[in-house]
Simulated assay, not measured.
Amino acid sequence: MEKFKKLCSFIREAYSAPEGFIPLHEPRFIGNEKTYVNDAIDSTFVSSVGEYVNRFEEIMCEITGAKYAVATVNGTSALQVALLLAGVESGDEVITQGLSFIATANAISYCGAQAVFLDVDKTTMGLSPAALKSFLEDYAQLKDGVCYNTKTGKKLAAIVPMHTFGHPVDIDSIITIAKEYNIPVVEDAAESLGSYYKKQHTGTFGVLGAFSFNGNKTVTCGGGGAIVTNDMALAEKAKHMTTTAKVPHPYEYTHDMVGFNFRMPNLNAAMACAQLEKLEEFVDNKRAWAKSLSGFCLENDIDFITEPQGTESNYWLNALCLVNREQRNGVLEFMNKQGVMCRPIWTLLFKMPMYAHCYRDEQINSQCLEDRIVNIPSSVII
Rank of each mutant, 00 (worst) to 15 (best):
F282C: 04
M241G: 10
I174T: 11
A245L: 06
D119P: 05
R328F: 08
S16C: 13
Y110F: 15
V380K: 01
I174L: 13
D144T: 08
E326T: 11
E26S: 14
S313F: 09
N230V: 06
M341T: 10
R263I: 03
V219G: 05
A245S: 15
I95R: 12
V94T: 03
T220H: 03
F334C: 05
N324G: 08
I381V: 15
S195Q: 05
Y196G: 05
P248S: 07
H163Q: 05
I183G: 10
A107I: 05
V169G: 08
G31F: 07
P265H: 06
T35A: 08
A113Q: 05
T243Y: 09
A226V: 10
L317C: 00
M352F: 13
S109H: 06
I171W: 02
T152F: 07
K133S: 14
T124K: 06
T150A: 12
E26R: 13
A270R: 08
A107C: 08
V120K: 01
V380C: 10
Q114H: 14
N216R: 10
F350N: 14
Q309E: 15
L24F: 04
D303K: 10
I171D: 00
C111Q: 03
T204S: 07
I11A: 08
C368D: 14
P18V: 00
S313Y: 03
I382G: 10
S379N: 08
N216D: 15
C61T: 10
G194Q: 00
A272I: 03
W316A: 06
Y181M: 02
K155E: 02
L85E: 07
L127V: 07
Q275K: 05
T243D: 14
H240P: 04
D284F: 15
K278D: 14
P353C: 07
K3Q: 13
V160A: 02
K286C: 08
Y197D: 02
L118Q: 04
I364Q: 12
G222D: 06
T254F: 06
D371P: 02
L83F: 04
R28P: 01
D42G: 09
F165H: 00
G87T: 04
A115W: 04
I59H: 00
H249D: 15
D303R: 12
F350G: 00
H201S: 15
A130Q: 06
H25Q: 11
Y68E: 01
H201N: 13
R325S: 09
G65T: 06
A157D: 00
G215Y: 11
M241R: 08
N266L: 01
I183Q: 06
C321S: 08
S48R: 09
A226Q: 11
D256E: 14
D92H: 15
M125I: 08
Y36M: 06
